[in-house]
Amino acid sequence: MSVQPQMPKSWRSETKPHKFCPGCGHPLILKALGEVIDELNIADRTVFGCDIGCSLLAWDFFNVDTIQTHHGRTTPVIVGLRRANENVIGIAYMGDGGGYAIGSQHLVNSAARDEKVFVLLANNTQYGMTGGQMAPTTLPGQKTETSPYGRDTELTGPPVQGPEMVAAISGENAYVARGTVGNVRQLKKFIKKAIQNVMEGRGFAFVEALSLCPTNWRTNAEDTWKFVEKDMATYFKVGEIKVPGEKKEG
């Protein structure tokens, strides 16, 4: 007799199994998110926005009202929605290309305006859906389809430090953290605090989750985990970066 893995209540069973690649980091992040939605009992007032890129595959993932938008534009759609209805808990979900490249102006300005929305960003160091091109988060020397000889930081700059950037520009009441799928318990805690921050109308919330892409990294299971836990962790420090009125963890 097979035992079904436990699924958050807010996951929509009709659309499972999900459409992500085997070994993808998205389902881990979305599981943490789903559990938080369950624990806070907010499925009725949550609007989940997903971007273009692999995140769009989550468009029918939850038993939560969902809007799949354009590349980089999930943040403004959710911001506009939250501005029009303050009862809504707005979550904008995107990848590193959507948040740090094409939609960076929206991320930066929403943080600066202290919009009461939660932006959750999966960082897998490259563009997954389009076939593994270099992203703002690609590590120095990392080979991608558009940096076939390895990322040259002289030519393309160093990896973008997203949460640090958001922390620098956001106000006192913003919550900013970087988690990792390598520590889902911690990631879930960050997500919960982020959602509580917007639920209580305190301020902007941003969590970057270090994620996995064995498909484009062309890694086996062992190397996949090594990449996220060793290589990525060298450049991207995991932990809370900004916590309104509290001591940071990590």
């Binding site: 354009h70 403004p76 759609v77 501005r83």
Partner: peptide
Amino acid sequence: FTCTGGVLAGK
């Protein structure tokens, strides 16, 4: 895009 968000909220 924020305008589409406002409309989706029913305004």
